[in-house]
Simulated assay, not measured.
Amino acid sequence: MNLTHQLNVSLSEQRVGSLVAADFRYAHVFSQFGIDFCCGGGRTLASACDKANVELSSVESELTKLDLQGQKEDALNLLPVSELIDYIEAKHHSYVREKAPLLIEYSQKMVRAHGEHHAEIKPFAGWIRALVDDLTPHLMKEEQILFPAIRTMAAGEVVNGCFGHIGNPINAMQHEHDDAGKILEKLHELTNDFQPPEHACTTWRVCYATLAEFEADLKQHIHLENNILFPKALALAN
Rank of each mutant, 00 (worst) to 15 (best):
residue 21 A to V: 08
residue 25 R to W: 15
residue 31 S to P: 11
residue 31 S to K: 15
residue 36 D to G: 10
residue 39 C to W: 05
residue 42 G to L: 03
residue 43 R to W: 09
residue 45 L to A: 10
residue 46 A to K: 05
residue 48 A to L: 04
residue 50 D to M: 00
residue 51 K to Y: 12
residue 51 K to C: 08
residue 54 V to A: 06
residue 55 E to M: 02
residue 56 L to N: 04
residue 59 V to C: 04
residue 62 E to Q: 15
residue 62 E to L: 11
residue 63 L to R: 08
residue 65 K to R: 13
residue 80 P to H: 01
residue 80 P to G: 01
residue 81 V to Y: 00
residue 82 S to L: 01
residue 82 S to E: 09
residue 83 E to D: 11
residue 84 L to E: 01
residue 85 I to L: 05
residue 87 Y to K: 09
residue 87 Y to C: 08
residue 92 H to L: 06
residue 92 H to D: 08
residue 93 H to M: 05
residue 95 Y to N: 03
residue 96 V to M: 12
residue 97 R to M: 14
residue 97 R to Y: 08
residue 98 E to G: 12
residue 101 P to R: 07
residue 103 L to V: 13
residue 105 E to V: 14
residue 107 S to C: 08
residue 107 S to Q: 09
residue 108 Q to S: 12
residue 110 M to G: 06
residue 112 R to Y: 00
residue 112 R to Q: 13
residue 115 G to S: 04
residue 119 A to G: 02
residue 120 E to H: 11
residue 127 W to M: 09
residue 129 R to S: 07
residue 134 D to A: 13
residue 136 T to G: 00
residue 137 P to Q: 05
residue 137 P to W: 03
residue 138 H to L: 05
residue 140 M to D: 00
residue 141 K to G: 10
residue 142 E to W: 05
residue 142 E to K: 13
residue 144 Q to S: 10
residue 145 I to M: 07
residue 148 P to N: 04
residue 151 R to S: 00
residue 155 A to P: 00
residue 159 V to Q: 02
residue 159 V to Y: 03
residue 164 G to K: 09
residue 164 G to R: 11
residue 164 G to V: 06
residue 166 I to M: 14
